[in-house]
Design a protein around this nucleic acid. Structure first.
Lengths: 234, 234
DNA sequence: CTTTATAGTGAACATACGTTCACAGTAAAT
DNA sequence: ATTTACTGTGAACGTATGTTCACTATAAAG
């Protein structure tokens, strides 16, 4: 009894100042807020060392400031949360991509600018990008395939983008997809290495920027020399 | 007392037939045998769904047919076992690479043959290759960096290999490394996708073979058109 | 043959886990 | 104002985990 009251009192006083933050908004807004908290917690726990499959449900709730049972009000289990993270992550990836495209439009040093903007976004949305990189090959197959599906979609987008370039005349749609795959692969790889570097070593970062830029340039040189069977023969 | 005797008897009788297998060899050979069993068990448990960091020590010992405490006679913890797996995996990778190189020597359809032999080896050593693919980006940083170091080494090997090609004249050593990186990246990626495919779908497999071959061809076309700053100007 | 070194045992430990349940508090609907 | 719908609580459960310890059995060394 005394114990119960005491705990309740502690809770109230602890919340106290945050009250405006904690209990603001409609019921639905608050639900979304703890949902966010769960997603954020999961991402945060993965930082650096751990993979998604090694993060426990209880850890997530603990880190989100919620009791374990509350988890089930939002997800049926960790896998569903994982899929939600895939969604979120690719939303930011696509947003980054769009902005990188816009920034690169002047087309002088197009490749360099694209790499710079993209890796810049990767840095600001570090956790999302790292999540994608980690779960692309590791962990459960359902999450892995969800990631792969999104990467494929993303590749297709880039492929239609590439089709607008003048040199694309000799290249079949299928081969454009193949080339886009190479580009995406290269950039994603670079992104993961980049995010995994000791954060205050601009030396290595610059080297990676340069190498990635070169690799993309080489790919485009290759594309220029490419001639698909049966395409552009006329 | 009776219980103890009974258990001992059961153990003896259960072993019975396998006696030659279980207890053959010197003390040291037997130790190596259970060490192998532990490594194998860990790889086996990772098959398909799980990442290394989600495999528990107890699972490994259980699956290896040994009591948990016995684990510590071989490794200080799971991380050490993980590093041993990195070692093993890259030994088979390098062996595969060497043989792929030998098989490709006739140099007609060099790329196609390399891809075929390499992916062939990947299939026979599925678990090692999958381990590498998974732990390259996921899991603990110490294992991740061990994998990355080996990949780097592997890339350097390929790079000196490429230097022997005639078209390498215009390319600086540094750029050769960059190109080798692109090649390795492409092949490893393809390998993981390949091993992750529903095993009895030769349709998709063929498509992947083709796409990978094309990507490598494009890279080599790019390399042909490449001219490093300050190299081959004379 | 006797002694020594050591791979594997089995029990115990404290701790963490996922999931369940009845319940409390409170927006939203009536 | 009363009822309903639902997010979050706290306790409990059975099970799994990593690590320790004294032990047994037996090759290898003396």
């Amino acid at each position: 009894m005394t114990l119960r009251k005491l705990r309740a009192a502690r809770r109230n006083s602890a919340v106290g100042a945050d009250d405006a933050l904690q209990s603001a908004g409609s019921r639905d807004e608050r639900k979304q807020r703890t949902r966010r908290a769960l997603l954020d917690a999961a991402l945060e726990l993965m930082q650096g060392e751990r993979s998604f499959s090694s993060v426990s449900l209880r850890e997530v709730t603990r880190s989100a400031g919620v009791v374990p049972a509350a988890f089930y009000r939002h997800f049926t289990g960790m896998e569903e949360l994982g899929l939600a993270l895939v969604d979120d992550s690719f939303k930011t990836l696509r947003r980054s991509m769009r902005e990188a495209r816009a920034a690169a439009l002047p087309a002088t040093h197009l490749i360099r600018r694209s790499v710079e903007t993209f890796l810049g976004y990767a840095q600001t949305h570090r956790r999302h990008f790292q999540f994608i990189a980690k779960e692309r090959f590791g962990g459960s197959s359902v999450i892995r395939f969800a990631v792969r599906k999104e990467v494929h979609l993303f590749t297709s987008e880039l492929s239609t983008d590439l089709a607008r370039f003048p040199l694309a005349g000799k290249i079949s749609t299928e081969d454009l997809q193949m080339i886009a795959g190479l580009v995406v692969q290269t950039v994603l790889m670079a992104t993961e290495v980049f995010l995994d570097m000791p954060q205050n070593d601009p030396e290595d970062a610059a080297q990676l920027y340069q190498q990635t830029e070169k690799q993309l340039r080489l790919i485009f040189i290759g594309a220029q020399g490419w001639r698909s069977k049966g395409a552009g023969r006329g």
